[in-house]
Simulated scan of single mutants.
Amino acid sequence: MSDADAPRIGIIGDDVPRQLVFAAGAVPRRLLGSWHEPVTPEAAELLGTVDAAAGRVLDDLLAGRHDDLSGLVVCHDSQANLRIFYVLRILAQRGRVPFPVHLVDVPRVSANAPARCFVSRQYARLLDFCAQVTGNRTDLTSLRRAAEQERELGRALEAMRERRRAGDCTGTEALTAYLLAATEPPEVAVSAVAGAGGATAPGATRVHLTGSNHPDAEIYRALEATGDVVVVGEDHDTGDGAWLGVAADGSSIDEVTDALTDAHLARPAAATGGLAEARAGHTLRRATHTRARAAIALVREHDDAPVWDLPRQRQALRDHDIALVARTRIPSGDAAATAARESLADLRELLATAGADA
């Protein structure tokens, strides 16, 4: 069966090792929602007060836009996603959702023995779920084949990051490629990433983006439209922070899941569940690695975790002469693009002041 004909398993969140999904004969498709479209009253009533992007994910599921999925995996990497899982579990029992729903709960904590055991068991259960959905037996051959697929994507992503650092790929092009990589079959994903390019404007201010993740590239497009800034990197989980291109080897299925467990526990801290100091350190490392001169934090309304990181991030970046401007509690709709333009105005003023004081 070709990837074009393979069953799709939806993913909500960013804690799923894609190798396991591919090894079971399925294609993972991350569901991302929207920062711009309003949440319907039904989704809002079912979920309560949550990040608008999460509400749009539920809206799309209720509207049948993902009825072609064979199964759905929800990650407990945020409280909003956990609420989605509880709602979908009830709706699935009532026949409202036409596919089975599975929860992956793998907190990023210290890599001690109990944590490793817990996460490894979660990934073993995930592999069983995927195999039940597809009806395909997972073995070392399929795991090796899936590992090579994912590593090919990883190599393409690293080459794209190098082009980005060199000024040969805009942030808009890069984010669009990341989103395609998370939602499309491997050959489409690798082609999109390999083709991502676009020379940046000479002299454009190199900017690192932090805060909420981005389910589409509209904000990046708004930031880069003037030509005086280029987004050279980010630490949110739909861009550079996405868990893509990672795979593991082993002489048994257990060894593979154990190695993926170690890879997960070694990931940088996420805004949800991560300590602010660790988050600030990661933001600083990413910003300096891409030679960013400034950083912009854009945070959606009800996505509170990134807001807690801002004081530490601002201090860490300031100590390395990297300016940070922020817009928080941004509502859905056109306010997102407006916030992006306002943050640019703040950034220009801040950089001009710093230049005058130098």
Rank of each mutant, 00 (worst) to 15 (best):
A6Q: 10
V16W: 04
V21A: 03
A23S: 09
A26K: 00
P28A: 04
W35R: 13
E42A: 12
L46T: 00
A54K: 11
G55D: 11
V57F: 02
L58F: 04
G64M: 03
R65Y: 03
S70P: 08
C75M: 07
N81P: 02
F85A: 06
L91D: 00
R94H: 13
R94Q: 12
V101E: 00
H102S: 13
R116A: 00
F118D: 12
F118G: 06
S120Y: 00
R121D: 14
Y123G: 04
A124T: 02
L126R: 03
A131M: 10
G135I: 05
L140F: 08
L143K: 12
R145C: 06
E148T: 14
E150I: 02
E162Y: 05
T170I: 07
E184H: 15
P186E: 04
A194G: 14
A194K: 14
G195Y: 01
G203W: 11
V207Y: 01
A222R: 14
T226R: 10
T226S: 12
D228C: 03
D228G: 03
V229Q: 01
D240K: 10
D249A: 11
G250Q: 00
D254E: 12
A269G: 01
L275H: 15
T288R: 15
A292D: 07
R293D: 15
V299D: 06
R300I: 02
D304M: 12
V307D: 13
D319W: 05
L324M: 08
R327A: 13
I330W: 08
G333H: 07
A335C: 10
A336W: 03
A336M: 03
A340E: 05
A354Y: 04
